[in-house]
């Protein structure tokens, strides 16, 4: 536990990347079933997810740079290996979510695709991929929890991220399970949630879950403001916005 990756025929495979790929495969199988069931166009779904994904990555990276501004040594930014190391790792989920939504909006604007139906039936994919990503976090030891010695605690011995040889709360697995439960809920009730309701419900449930789980996280490097993390501040804002939107629908 705690290693970043492994080698296959001298080719490095990152555990985090591998779990994301597995998550994407599972999510796309479910999306394929949903598009066939509900007479949606598969090509349009691919365009929406790719555009959302592209802008999501940009958003996640921008928010990462904002929240970890103090840890980045800007005097070394012209050093190509340092610049690439910043680009390689470091994403903040909420930045990805905001960027992804912007990407979906551009999809509607430029490709003239009615995204509402796709969001209604395929929003399930997002918590699935996120859940698998959190399993990747658990394997490598990033996004680790507070010191804890109860059942299911995890001890890393070779982690680059988590403190080694200390018993920690498995916050990554808890968040992964939470994401899978949200995915199951959205999949079951997708037909009943018309328009953007499923999107608002997903974001609302996730924001509430994330707000409380943040208290169990111990990686304060992401930025703290009066003992409240950046993600908790964003969670509160998102909860307010989603409640307003759900009340008006």
């Amino acid at each position: 536990m705690g290693k970043i990756g492994f080698y296959i025929f001298n080719h490095f495979i990152a555990y985090y990347g591998l779990t994301i790929v597995i998550g994407l495969i599972v999510a796309f199988i479910i999306a394929f079933i949903q598009t066939k069931r509900n007479n949606l166009i598969w090509n349009d779904f691919i365009i929406i997810t790719s555009t959302g994904g592209l802008f999501g990555i940009i958003g996640a990276k921008i928010l990462y740079i904002i929240v970890s501004f103090h840890t980045i040594d800007f005097s070394k930014i012209i050093d190509i290996s340092y610049l690439f190391s910043i680009m390689q790792g470091g994403f903040v989920f909420y930045g990805g979510l905001i960027g992804g939504l912007f990407g979906i909006w551009t999809c509607q604007k430029f490709f003239h695709i009615d995204v509402q139906k796709y969001i209604q039936y395929c929003i399930t994919c997002l918590p699935i991929v996120h859940g698998f990503g959190r399993i990747g976090c658990y394997i490598v030891g990033c996004c680790y929890g507070i010191p804890y010695e109860g059942s299911f605690c995890v001890i890393y011995h070779n982690s680059f991220y988590a403190p080694n040889n200390i018993s920690l709360f498995p916050i990554q697995l808890v968040e992964a399970i939470g994401n899978f439960i949200i995915a199951l809920f959205l999949f079951t009730f997708s037909k009943k949630m018309k328009g953007y309701t499923s999107l608002y419900i997903y974001i609302l449930i996730y924001a509430i879950m994330r707000f409380f789980l943040e208290f169990m996280r111990n990686d304060s490097i992401r930025g703290l403001f009066y003992n409240i993390s950046t993600s908790q501040i964003i969670s509160i804002m998102i909860i307010v916005i989603c409640c307003k939107k759900l009340a008006s629908t």
Binding site: Y16, G17, S68, T71, I86, G90, V92, G133, F160, I221
Partner: peptide, 24 residues
């Protein structure tokens, strides 16, 4: 997919480690 398999980490920390060279 190939490039995704090479992706290293999810959260922060990479720059803390002194660049990618520290990882390999």
């Amino acid at each position: 997919i190939l490039c995704l398999l090479l992706y290293i980490a999810c959260a922060v920390y990479i720059n803390k480690l002194g660049g990618l060279n520290a990882l390999f």
